[in-house]
Design a binder for these strands. Structure first.
Lengths: 357, 357
DNA sequence: ACACAATATGGAACCCGTTCCATATTGCAG
DNA sequence: CTGCAATATGGAACGGGTTCCATATTGTGT
């Protein structure tokens, strides 16, 4: 039954369409259409349309007549009709797992601005761990509601994506041969983090790592981090996080767990939010940062600048990720076959005051 | 010339519509339409449509035939055509000045979830201080691209809004008689902040206040704060912020300015991000929080929980604001005349460790 | 003066569903 | 067996634009 809209609420709203609106007949509250303009200006609809789109010939005098008619009728072209003909809406759906995660917030911010520059609008979907929401947005591609999808979500089965033969760009995730991926050089990120922590003399580092259920480029950073640490003779305590959990509550719980276990460490590597929470708990237990414990966080979003001391971080070039995602989706929509063109950007080190010796 | 799309880029993208697609004729890559389904199932288009929408009679046998045809053709209804007929898209535009401000991020997060529950999609626009972007989205209402607008932006001339006779809900701003406002009881917020700071013995409080250019409910908190402080005999240093600036860079600059001036204070009241930056600078200058300086921030977004010590804050019920906004826009779209029904929600106090004596 | 291009215009066909209306068949009460 | 409601179906008209084609007029070169 996949051709039917599933969400009852959506139906509840859209079904109410029945109230057929009667044009002209009595009620004069209807909006002026191109025909009304044509009639008022004593020209054909084609002429009005040509003028609106600057396509084909329209005499200067006719232009004036039409302009006046449009002004008098307060005419605005109905984009829905245009969309139908063009089979385009100029809307791109952006899927993120959560808007409360600063990484995605910054991504969204840049994507929106970039899309705007290309003349696209952004439809935002925060899937909140619900994979059916993800499915629904994917379906909107088929339904012609959006022209493309940029997905930063890691929940749905890859097979679902492979079915869709429409413009899709993936952020930091492999979704099959046809779907281009935009990601950073996570291996380098893992290495940088490891070098930084080992350089300031850490002997035992707490390493928060993502779950390995999903095939994603970001695992590289964990492998490389572990490898480098081992090479430097630094011990690591690996703490595996649940899959697809990005909420603060969960991070708090993780940190409480770590401290309840009484783990001993002099360095921490984890995603921004988690590293920060861990640092705060460290401070609360009357240790000094960075004297007693060093911190390097991953992502380098704005929150790393908002804590005291400022966090040393591996910075993902989020603006770059956003720009590349939009560039790719634009090219896919344009029909150019840039498929399989994966984009890998460089990370950088933000030196804060959580790693100085 | 207001009926013409102004942004050249938008045009660049949409103009390319010219590639007329030829159905059937040779190229078999075209998508199946309802006619193809009807033909394949040997029924009329009306019957297929009735089945899709569960309206009117369709015999069980006919149903089966159509189902098979749909499956074989991998048919998905074109929502664009439906939109045209229904004059609805189910999309709501949400306008915010900036996505980097945690207040708006949380708002967006809740609004998205709530809209989803009503069966709406969210189009997000971050106007980034550009009022022409705001205008453009307002225009999308007329163009039938979105069914309604929820605006948290404070830049455009109010007159522009008054012209639009379509569903609009304003967050924390008066936009004229017809446009319902959702806001919190800022007066109570100002009072709470003042009581809290004066209760922990502050004698001279630094008060960051918004610019007064725009008529907005939030000014109340500043008036009330000042009034209460005066009543308690607490001195205040008023620092007026630029209008419509929410970025971190600006806040940093403001804080630097404050410390450069060598102002003396033992309490601070300002918006989350600013209070936090101010607190961090205080810590960096080797003062103790809350011993030497007390802090109360406004908004109470998640970042107040992310700093050490945790910030005492006046919490806006962002989820409530979001829910009410969506409820109102839904009712406006439904045609019920709930205009002029302004919603005021209560604030609450989050007790952190920046105010204890 | 003639041919042909450039300029101008109206209107039909189309995009793809939805709804209404005309028509047909079946079921059941009187 | 007649009459009327319920069931069932096809297709035209519609929603509001866009484009193409047929047609007309003006301009230019020879």
């Amino acid at each position: 039954m996949k051709w039917q809209v599933e969400r009852s609420d959506a139906c509840r709203y859209l079904k109410r369409a029945g109230e057929r609106y009667k044009k002209g007949e009595g009620g004069e509250n209807s909006v002026a259409g191109i025909k009304d303009v044509a009639k008022k200006a004593h020209v054909g609809v084609g002429t009005v349309s040509r003028m609106l789109n600057d396509s084909g010939y329209v005499a200067v005098e006719t232009r004036k007549k039409i302009e006046i008619a449009m002004k008098e009728l307060d005419y605005t072209p109905n984009e829905l009709a245009r969309n139908l003909y063009r089979k385009k809406t100029g809307i791109i759906a952006v899927l993120v797992p959560s808007v409360s995660n600063p990484f995605f917030v910054e991504f969204i911010d840049y994507v929106e601005a970039e899309l705007y520059d290309y003349g696209f609008k952004m439809m935002l979907c925060s899937t909140q761990q619900e994979s059916n929401a993800e499915l629904e947005y994917l379906d909107m591609l088929k339904r012609h509601i959006v022209d493309g999808v940029i997905t930063g979500v890691h929940s749905l089965d890859v097979e679902e994506y492979k079915k869709v033969k429409k413009p899709i760009v993936a952020l930091d995730r492999y979704l099959g041969e046809d779907i281009p991926v935009v990601a950073v050089n996570h291996k380098e990120g893992g290495r940088l983090a490891a070098e930084t922590l080992s350089a300031c003399g850490c002997k035992c580092v707490l390493h928060f790592r993502g779950a390995i259920e999903v095939e994603s480029p970001y695992h590289e950073r964990h492998y490389e981090f572990e490898r480098c640490m081992k090479a430097h003779g630094v011990r690591t305590i690996c703490y595996e996080l649940e899959w697809n959990r990005f909420d603060f509550k969960y991070y708090q719980q993780v940190v409480r767990d770590v401290f309840a276990k009484g783990l001993e460490f002099d360095g921490v590597f984890g995603v921004d939010r988690l590293a920060i929470e861990c640092m705060n708990e460290t401070i609360r237990s009357h240790k000094k940062v960075p004297r007693d414990v060093k911190f390097v966080s991953y992502d380098g979003t704005y929150i790393t600048e908002m804590v005291e001391p400022k966090m040393t971080a591996i910075v993902q070039p989020i603006e770059g990720l956003a720009k590349e995602s939009v560039r790719l989706i634009h090219e896919l929509i344009g029909g150019r076959c840039y498929k399989n063109e994966n984009v890998i950007l460089d990370v950088s080190l933000q030196t804060g005051r959580t790693t100085t010796v």
